[in-house]
Each structure stands twice: as structure tokens, then as C-alpha cells.
Simulated assay, not measured.
Amino acid sequence: MAEGEQGTYVKSGEEFVRDTDYVTTRITCDGADGFTPEAGRYRLVVARACPWANRAVIVRRLLGLEGAISMGMCGPTHDARSWTFDLDPGGRDPVLGYERLQEAYFALDPDYPKGITVPAIVDTTTGKLVTNDYPQMTLDLSTEWTDFHREGAPDLYPEALRDEIDAMAQTNFTEVNNGVYRCGFAGSQEAYDKAYRRLFTRLDELEEHLSTRRYLVGDTITEADVRLFTTLARFDAVYHGHFKCNRAKLIEFPALWAYTRDLFQTPGFGDTIDFPQIKEHYYVVHTEINPTRIVPQGPDVRGFLSPHGREQLGGRPFGDGTPPGPPPEAERVPPGHGAD
């Protein structure tokens, strides 16, 4: 299950298993699936609350694809039917004209049987979903949309390091990105205990790995860092308490916490994080875990802007490239919603 899939998460006595059966249509230069990169044709639909969608937002920012791929923003909460465009005037996406993301899914398949997930790329010429395959989506933004990258865009998926990036990302997915969900949606004490041990075993490994190197793979930011960051940025705010991942807070891991602050303070990362929306989503939508829907006031997130000292480890955040400029005015996180 990706973030936002409707239905029951917790099944008594069972271990949480994520449904990874997505619409795998790709937008590629060779048009093998019938879709090629075209400026203005596609709309990336996301929600700031969702870590999987957050990956696509960051990659789009880093590569400078704002002018080629427009972005629609769902609100942080949804009902059993779908993510909604309740942040937009009149509650409709201004480009697609939809009230609910499910309309794009049903335009593709009126009997679409799976959950309605973000991120999703929609063809604005037909209103139909193209893909919700979030792992492939960001890789394709890096490799298939190069004609539309900004000048100075970083190489987030360098060919020489792809096997290492893929291996790192896969391990982090199973043990950390999805590991927090296995803790939170465990249907038995045994399932939770197992998930908890696996999660913190991997976090301990990452703490050691990052104590002597600035980034996960190579000496620049890669896709692997983007994928880990979106989970770490949410760890203390939701996963530590809401998902019972409470052996330690992120701020108690010296290297991981400094690494997260380093990325947060890098243009394209922290400027995509909306803490109130993140907390509202998890604590309001997951009523099986939090039936009162009370959203906690803490934690104090101003520490994300404190000095991290990671420069001493070397590394070049954007390699031979440059940082992205400020986000478009309409896409900026509201004041007071970040770490300011």
C-alpha cells in the first residue's frame, strides 16, 4: 500500500504487507508505453503529507522540472474514497477540474480495483491516470526527462553507481521506509516486535555508515538520499509516537540526525516539508491507531535548522551542478509550516 490507499491497514494477528501492484505505465523517450516527455502535458498530483509523494516533489525541484510538469496538491486528509483537492478554490484542481484524485483513476479504468494513491501523474489531455508507480516515477524524471532539466541539474542517478544506489534504496525501503509502517500497522505483538527490531537494526547500520561519509552512495546527493530523507524527516513528528517506533528519536542518532539536517537545509529538500500537514494526515486519517484524531502539538522542529557540521566529511551536494532556485510562489510551504 502506498500512502493514501483506502481500506483497513491493521489486520488482527497479521504482519503489515504493502500492496505494490501499481499502474506501471512509463513516460519514456522511446514512447514504448505510448507516452513521451512533453512540456505541459502531464500533471504530478501529490500531497505534502505523504513521504512517497514527497520524493517526487523533491526530485522535480532538484531537476528544475517545474516548468515542464505542473503540480496539483491534495489536502492532508482524505476519506474512504480518495484524496481530495480541498486546498484549491472551490475544492477542484484548477487544471484537471477534479474534486477527487479517484476521478483520474476511474477515467483510466471505471472499475479500478486498487487504492487511490499519490504521487500520481495524470495526462491533462485526457484526464486519465498515467502512472502511480512512485519508485520508477522519480527514476524516469532523472533519466527520461533530461531535455527538460534545468541548467545545472544534478545527476541523481549516475549510471556508474546505479547498482549501488538500487541496493541501498531497496534495503532502506524494506527496513526503514516500509519498516515504520510494519511497526505502526502490525496486527499482533509478535509482528510488531519483529518489525521494531528490523527497523532499529537498520537505523543502527545507517548511523554507522553515515558517521564517516556525507551521503549514502558516492560523494553527491543521489536518489538513495531522497528516498531515505522523506522517512527521516517524519520520524520524530509521527513515526516515533504514532507508529510506536520509540526505541530512540531521530535526534538521538548523532550521524543520522546531522545527515537529515544537512539535507533539510539543502535547497529542494526542507523547503518541501510541511510539518502541520504531515501530522494532520497521520493522526487524523489513521483512526484505527488514533481514534480520537487528536493531533499532538510537538515536537519542536526548529532543530532542523541548527548547524550540522557535515561539510567536514567532504562531498559535493550537487556534484558538478548547482542548487535549484526558490520554489514557485504558488508551491511554497506556508510560513510557520516548515522549521522556521
Rank of each mutant, 00 (worst) to 15 (best):
P299K: 02
L232T: 03
Y215W: 14
T222L: 11
T272S: 08
A258S: 07
E280P: 05
D219N: 10
R234E: 02
E208C: 01
T292W: 14
R213K: 10
S306D: 08
D219C: 03
T220R: 13
T220Y: 12
L305Q: 13
Q265S: 09
T230C: 02
E205G: 11
K279N: 12
N246V: 08
R234Q: 00
P254W: 00
P291S: 14
V301E: 05
P254L: 01
Q265T: 14
P307M: 05
V295Q: 10
A237T: 01
Q297E: 15
T266M: 07
E207I: 00
E288P: 15
R261L: 07
P299M: 01
T260P: 04
L210D: 00
E207G: 00
R293L: 06
Q265A: 09
E223I: 11
I273C: 08
A233F: 06
L263T: 13
I289F: 14
R261I: 12
G270E: 01
E205F: 01
R293C: 01
N290L: 04
D271W: 10
R261E: 11
L305G: 12
I273S: 01
R227C: 03
R213G: 08
C245A: 15
V284N: 14
N290G: 05
D225S: 05
T231N: 02
C245E: 13
L250E: 05
L199F: 00
Y215C: 13
F229G: 15
D262M: 15
Q265M: 04
T287S: 15
D300Q: 00
C245D: 11
E223V: 12
E288G: 15
P276A: 04
R202C: 06
D193K: 04
A255L: 00
V295S: 06
I289E: 13
L199G: 08
L203D: 03
Y283S: 10
E288F: 15
R302V: 09
E288A: 15
F235S: 05
C245S: 15
L263F: 13
R302F: 06
H242G: 09
H209F: 02
A237E: 03
P299G: 05
A224H: 02
F264M: 14
K194Y: 12
Q297P: 12
N246P: 12
D236S: 10
T230H: 00
